[in-house]
Design a binder for these strands. Structure first.
Length: 274
DNA sequence: GAAATCTTTCCTGCTT
DNA sequence: TAAGCAGGAAAGATTT
């Protein structure tokens, strides 16, 4: 994490952010974003690190900006931290793209607040120092979003920090996945969570289990992030994918780049598996 | 500590 | 020429 929040967003909205600061393209930043993405996850304050990255990816896509122009590691933060970044923090972290990101998150925060008001009809905030919406989900503290692990609803079960939950979470991971999520499961779960998959991988033939990497480098970065390996590349990831051919977790798709197919030993990707 | 498993890293050669 | 694919080899990390 290389960006330290220096000012609250609220203070900047009144002090730093003004039309003079506007990015030339700023009017195009967010229209449609909140309705296009995660309709239940309006509040950026509650995003996981993974969702922050997704948001980054989406904004970059919308503006057709090369994702390599910003260092994703500068946004190794969750939504709460993201919302605390100042305009200058965004400039520092993302250079010329900073104003776009700042405006986007500002708009999202505001629109999220609107939705929260409706959501709070159903859920009451409890032991958090900020409000809670119907969209609020919690992930293991300090972890990035893992699509294979169902989120913990804050009011439907004990808090994620409770010892019981921690124990059962730990048991579950150890029993079925000694090393945590496998690569193929990570890929599968991105595919199975389209609302959390902003154009990284897409189904080519859903019934046949054929899928294609749209942003191979971004997926590799995410995988590396999950494995705490900042040097992960698509080349390395694809080598690991090819090992699955032998185990029939994946099948070769000849002649098509970035295209893979789930094999007979892959589980949980079929619609009928749900 | 050994074995097994899975993943990472590096490499060469081939294909698109 | 670059990017991606295929697969061998070795090593690292982790669990059993």
């Amino acid at each position: 994490m290389s960006v330290t929040p220096s000012t609250t967003l609220d203070s900047l909205l009144t002090a730093s952010w003004s039309p003079r600061n506007s990015y030339s393209d700023v009017s195009m930043v967010t229209p449609g974003y909140t309705s296009r993405l995660w309709p239940r996850d309006f509040q950026p304050q509650f995003w996981s690190k993974f969702q922050v990255w997704e948001w980054l990816q989406q904004v970059m896509d919308m503006h057709q900006i090369d994702t390599s122009t910003i260092p994703f590691q500068n946004f190794d933060i969750d939504g709460h931290q993201l919302c605390s970044l100042s305009y200058q923090d965004f400039i520092h972290a993302a250079g010329s793209v900073g104003p776009i990101l700042f405006h986007s998150i500002t708009e999202l925060k505001w629109s999220g607040q609107y939705h929260v008001d409706a959501g709070q009809l159903e859920l009451k905030p409890e032991s958090k120092n900020y409000s809670c919406s119907f969209s609020d989900v919690s992930y293991p503290p300090g972890d990035i979003f893992d699509p294979s692990i169902p989120p913990v609803a804050p009011l439907a079960s004990p808090t994620p920090s409770s010892p019981d939950i921690k124990r059962s979470f730990s048991r579950q991971v150890k029993k079925h996945n000694p090393r945590g999520t496998h690569l193929w499961e990570f890929i599968r779960d991105i595919l199975l969570n389209p609302e959390r998959n902003p154009g990284l991988i897409k189904w080519e033939d859903r019934p046949e289990g054929v899928f294609r990497f749209l942003k191979s480098d971004a997926v590799a970065q995410l995988w590396g992030k999950k494995k705490n390996n900042s040097s992960m590349t698509y080349e390395k990831l694809s080598r690991a994918m090819r090992y699955y051919y032998k185990r029939e977790i994946l099948e070769r798709v000849d002649g098509r780049r970035l295209v893979y197919k789930f094999g007979r030993n892959a589980r949980g990707w079929r619609e009928s598996d749900k």
